[in-house]
Amino acid sequence: MNNITVTVNATEYPPQSKHKVIFQTFKKLQPSEAMLLVNDHDPIPLRFQFESIHSGAFTWEYLEQGPDIFRVKISKL
């Protein structure tokens, strides 16, 4: 089932705003909804930040893993 309700293209934001926009978007999701994150590099640091702040409240699924574009489905549990 495709439950992606919003897409965040991180390449469209300045570096200092990316994580803020991503976390604000995640906060607005309802349980079982997901966001699609599009980025130009592997967002490993973001994943660690999600695990620190939202441990057990999300899933992280790579839909595309580079080398130029990374697409990650982040679902709210």
Rank of each mutant, 00 (worst) to 15 (best):
K27D: 15
I22T: 04
V38R: 05
D42I: 02
L77N: 13
I4Q: 12
T25F: 02
T11D: 11
V38N: 10
K73N: 10
F58V: 04
Q49M: 07
R47M: 12
A34V: 02
M1G: 15
P15L: 04
I53V: 08
N9A: 02
T11V: 04
F70W: 06
V21Q: 08
K20A: 14
Q16D: 14
E51L: 09
F50E: 13
E51I: 00
A10P: 12
F48D: 13
P31V: 09
Q24M: 01
I22V: 01
Q16A: 10
T7K: 05
Y62E: 09
T11L: 06
K20S: 14
I53F: 14
T25I: 04
A34Y: 00
L46K: 02
F48A: 12
I74H: 04
K76W: 01
H41W: 02
F48H: 13
V38P: 13
T59C: 11
K27G: 13
V21A: 09
I69Q: 14
K18A: 10
Q24D: 09
P45Y: 01
P45R: 00
P31K: 15
I4N: 12
Q24P: 07
N3K: 09
H41C: 11
K73E: 10
S75I: 00
E12F: 05
D68S: 08
G66L: 00
L63C: 08
E61H: 13
I53L: 15
L77M: 07
Q24E: 05
P15Y: 00
S17R: 00
T11C: 11
I53Q: 15
L77R: 06
V38D: 13
H54S: 15
Q49E: 13
P15S: 07
H19Q: 06
K73I: 03
L37W: 01
N9T: 02
T25R: 03
A34N: 07
T5W: 00
Q65P: 10
A57H: 09
N39K: 02
Q65D: 10
